[in-house]
Design a protein around this nucleic acid. Sequence first.
DNA 1: TAGTCGTTGACCGA
DNA 2: TCGGTCAACGACTA
Length: 538
Amino acid sequence: MSSGSGSLMWFRKGLRIHDNPALEYASKGSNFLYPVFVIDPHYMKPDREAFSPGSSKAGLNRIQFLLESLRDLDLNLKRLGSRLLVLKGEPSEVLLRCLKEWDVKKLCFEYDTEPYYQALDVKVKSYASTAGMEIYSPVSHTLFNPADIIRKNGGKPPLSYQSFLKLAGEPSWASSPLSITLSSLPPVGNTGNCNISEVPTVEELGYEETQQDELSPFRGGETEALKRLRESIENKEWVAKFEKPKGDPSAFLKPATTVLSPYLKFGCLSSRYFYICLKDLYKNVKTHTVPPVSLAGQLLWRDFFYTVAFGTPSFDRMRGNKICKQIPWNDDDELLVAWREARTGFPWIDAIMTQLRKWGWMHHLARHCVACFLTRGDLFVHWEKGRDVFERLLIDSDWAINNGNWLWLSCSSFFYQYNRIYSPISFGKKYDPNGDYIRHFLPVLKADMPKEYIYEPWTAPLSIQNKAKCIIGRDYPKPVVAHDSASKDCRRRMAEAYALNHKMSGMVSAEDLRNLRRKLEEDQKPEVENKRQRKLIG
DNA sequence: TAGTCGTTGACCGA
DNA sequence: TCGGTCAACGACTA
């Protein structure tokens, strides 16, 4: 056994060496260091029932990304004279066993605001403090401590970005230099009988060799994150002029953004280090863009959603969520599946959903289009269902940000102008009139579908469809809805739902919603009947 | 309480 | 490429 100054560094997110205050503190004055990552089978083991390759919680792309990040972390720890100790099992059980068996005086881990970790940390902290261990759990995943912002705002999270900015100001740590490098780490202590393994491969986790024809082009890990960051900020002019809404969602050979989000999600890249790099760059250019559209503004968006998510009970649900409009979304699994499986018949939408499936990433505006289409724009399917699909398939899916954006896009919170609907036809066309993005992700439309019809192939004359070897309804689906009438109907439903929320001052009961759903369906009946009649006559 | 403003809509006409 | 219109929301602020 060690001399009694061992520390356990528990990695969860924060899979990095640079700007890692928990790791730094754990190594300071310790004779031994136990750098631990616990693989939770619930998160990792194959689930054959799931709608895509992966576990019950995560798609294979993100599992792969996490494993790559862990391998990189292990390598970086080895360079400093340590290594990553990988253990398997239910995280709190595994950790408690380690704390009991090893000689640990200090337990260090990055603070996490997600409900999952909040609950987990209560268990672990309670054991560690009873056992007389020192616990160090600093906030280093975000620029600000969400609790500080909420306190400053009188106990409530700010609900607009601008008010968040005002409350937040400049982060307190930004005036002093961050600890970016570590020169060495204490050796790993005696691990006794604990079953330590190397970072597994996906095959070792039980996945078969993947059949997918196109894999995510993004590799995980701190090394890759820092390389990507360097490459992005090398182009000073590009950073200084960056305006998020002006990015091209159809750019896939060279994405219009940094694609640093997956690295921020797992903490392979410190958001604080990224922020400091941007501030340094801004100092050295004549002019630069500002929040909300600037690159620094994107990091602040992340903090905004973290803050609201932390301060809002049931943030990830409609019911019981005080900031969420109660809307009678329909429960149509057929439409959901068509959307999820890229079979809506709208090539722009289906190409984006295919990119999501294959790459685990797509441009922010592309996410807007498909989220709007699924919910308030066309299909009127519950945002929680779309959220689940994103949560599974995105390599950067982040609890606070993903839920926040679905609340936003579905006009359930933050954003309320439900008349502004993205067209599944004309929005993409603005950026990519030739349809190169569609042709890449939907090979069935690649060959000879003329650009005049690539966004609306069902309008192509049969002769053209024949020539393009793509018959609509056979080789590629007919559109699941008519956008013009569907979006009009969505607007009507949203107006009714808003009126109900207004009338009830937000206290809409389940029964109120049921009644409204019934009313909306009855209002629609004559229209459906008319359509049927027209069909009969036609 | 009234007025301002809001990360990124579509469409039309100039 | 621009500005106006569509129809009209809620958070925040003075």
